[in-house]
């Protein structure tokens, strides 16, 4: 077992609305190992996105603490790449300039960052669309551009919030494969949020099923051999067994 890169202890997050406190997360404990692919599985409204926002350091926790790489986190965590549910490409920048942005902010020279960006754009299959603005692209293409931008920052940890939720099944499978290819052997850590059990099982080393207010219902290692072919694996008895178990845990949480 390798070292923990993210450690979450007694994490709670409340949102205040007038005189009411909305509790999104309560007392969450979670450890993410370096280089692992962790999937957080949960129904909508269980605080998955809030948890990712906290891991990214975009909002401070109400109580509890998060350490990243052994250090307590303060402010935005710039070691992570965060792919949110909705696109955050700058609409006034074309694809190439969007992808370059992380390196532009680091002050890298134009030539250098253009070369990296061009490579990444090719990697995600967007070559030929460098000069297009986000609104001229389809949803799937925008996802690819976002993915390329995230990778351009060369983050050591990837936080992905239902990144392929809005895509058609083919494209989703394709991008899942691409993500696995980028992850395997890179030493990067991935925290992937989804509500889709199949997606969780195809991708994960470990699935954590979250219930209301972030209660951990099940912490399930996934020992299916890689590479996992999405078509064949569905009929694998072990896959079916895991699927049943995760599904049961989700149902349990609903009660």
């Amino acid at each position: 077992m390798s070292a923990a890169v993210i450690e979450v202890q007694g994490l709670s997050k409340h949102f205040r609305k007038d005189d009411e406190e909305l509790i999104a997360l309560r007392g969450v404990d979670l450890t993410v190992e370096q280089g692992s692919f962790l999937v957080l599985l949960g129904r909508s409204g269980c605080g998955k996105s809030t948890l990712l926002n906290l891991l990214a350091g975009l909002t401070p926790p109400t109580s509890g603490q998060i350490t990243y790489g052994g250090k307590p986190m303060r402010g935005p965590n710039t070691q992570v790449g965060y792919l949110t549910q909705h696109d955050t490409l700058m609409p006034w920048r074309d694809v190439a300039r969007n992808v370059q942005m992380p390196r532009e902010l680091r002050g890298e020279s134009k030539k250098e960052r253009a070369a990296v960006a061009a490579e990444l754009i090719k990697l995600v299959g967007l070559d030929g669309f460098e000069r297009h603005y986000p609104r001229e692209l389809s949803g799937g293409m925008r996802r690819r551009a976002s993915l390329a931008r995230m990778l351009c920052a060369d983050p050591e940890t990837l936080l992905l919030d239902e990144p392929f939720g809005a895509l058609d099944a083919q494209l989703r499978t394709e991008l899942q494969g691409e993500l696995l290819r980028l992850w395997s052997g890179s030493g990067r850590t991935v925290v992937f949020v989804t509500h889709d059990i199949e997606e969780a099982l195809i991708l994960a080393d470990r699935v954590v099923v979250l219930g209301p207010v972030g209660t951990i219902l099940l912490d399930q290692p996934v020992d299916l051999p890689r590479p996992r072919d999405p078509d064949d694996i569905r009929v694998d008895p072990h896959f079916v067994e895991l699927h049943r178990r995760l599904s049961a845990a989700l149902k349990e949480g609903a009660r």
């Binding site: 935005p76 965590n77 949110t84 955050t88 942005m101 992380p102 902010l105």
Partner: peptide
């Protein structure tokens, strides 16, 4: 859009970057 500002914060953008680039 708050999300765009957050994206730049995660890229280690300064207040100046946020002001001028978002």
């Amino acid at each position: 859009d708050r999300a765009l500002v957050d994206a730049v914060r995660l890229m280690n953008g300064t207040r100046r970057d946020i002001a001028f680039k978002v």
